[in-house]
């Protein structure tokens, strides 16, 4: 039986699949912009310690609140530190912590959601009510409680953020699982006597993976905003480590006469969030989750 090349699609290696997805993402203007911004930030996070022109913690009272100039591109802050140096270094902590935080959120939220979706019944009811209860707690208050009890170290922040942002993923993963669970291939696996673990691993995960990954990418950008809010309130990164949230918080009183010390970290933070959002959208479209772009027939 002949199948024409447009329907022909052999099994591809994982690398080929990933690169195809990235190419599809970059072929759309919004995806291209998002990916570029994200990649720019990631590269910057890696190289900034080597390219920063000044020492980020060098205080110089004689250079307080200098306007941008050829020497100090983004000016200086109230302690005479170079804003450019602090801005390019300011995303590192946030990016790292939220990246690992979203991985944890993805993992526990995704697996718990799939498990609840598959098992159903009373277990599902109880777990989901607990998740709902946690959803109703304002996350920032809970975070503040945790941080004030356990400190603001990375080992506390990553799992705490991961926990709070994973709750929403539980719901998405559970809903995605419900879509799959009614299909006959799951019934067939059950009738054959596969274990729950095998059903989750072999039958469900390949079918809900895409939806969960997209949700995880969206959570990443929210978590970034959340983490920066914590820093803004003084519960994230401790000074003098440069961090956007912290920089905005410090300089916000000076906004009327030293706008540069606020604008630089704001641009840094919002561009990263926009970049991640656009990338997540493009990712969803490349995976075909967005219905409007599905090919005809």
């Amino acid at each position: 039986m002949k199948l024409d090349n447009i329907y022909q699609e052999e099994k591809k290696s994982n690398f080929a699949k990933v690169s195809e997805i990235i190419i599809t993402m970059a072929s759309r203007p919004s995806g291209f912009i998002g990916l570029s911004i994200l990649i720019f930030h990631v590269i910057l996070a890696f190289i900034s310690p080597y390219v920063a022109p000044y020492d980020f913690k060098a205080i110089n009272p004689t250079l307080m609140l200098q306007a941008p100039s050829a020497e100090y591109w983004f000016g200086t802050d109230d302690l005479g530190r170079d804003v450019f140096t602090r801005t390019i270094l300011g995303g590192r902590t946030a990016l790292t912590i939220t990246f690992f935080g979203s991985l944890i959120a993805l993992l526990w939220g995704g697996l718990l959601g799939i498990f609840c979706g598959l098992v159903g019944g009373k277990t599902d009811d109880i777990v989901m009510r607990i998740v709902d209860a946690f959803l109703s707690i304002p996350w920032i208050l809970a975070m503040l409680l945790i941080v004030s009890l356990l400190g603001t170290s990375t080992e506390v922040l990553i799992p705490a953020l991961g926990f709070f942002y994973g709750k929403g993923i539980v719901r998405v993963a559970r809903a995605a699982t419900h879509d799959v669970i009614a299909k006959d291939f799951i019934v067939s696996a059950r009738a054959r006597g596969h274990s729950n673990f095998s059903i989750i691993w072999n039958e469900i995960i390949p079918n809900v993976r895409d939806a969960i990954l997209v949700e995880g990418a969206m959570r990443w950008s929210w978590m970034l905003l959340g983490f920066s809010s914590l820093s803004f309130l003084g519960f994230g990164v401790s000074p003098p480590t440069p961090d956007w949230g912290l920089m905005i918080s410090n300089a916000r009183g000076l906004m009327s006469f030293a706008y540069w010390s606020v604008i630089a970290p704001i641009v840094g933070l919002s561009s990263l969030i926009i970049g991640i959002n656009l990338t997540a959208d493009a990712f969803a479209k490349a995976l075909g989750i967005d219905r409007s772009t599905k090919a005809p027939v």
């Binding site: 299909k183 006959d184 291939f185 019934v187 067939s188 072999n202 039958e203 390949p206 079918n207």
Partner: peptide, 10 residues
Amino acid sequence: FQNPDESLNP
């Protein structure tokens, strides 16, 4: 099953 679209994992 009736519908092979649903009984085979895509």
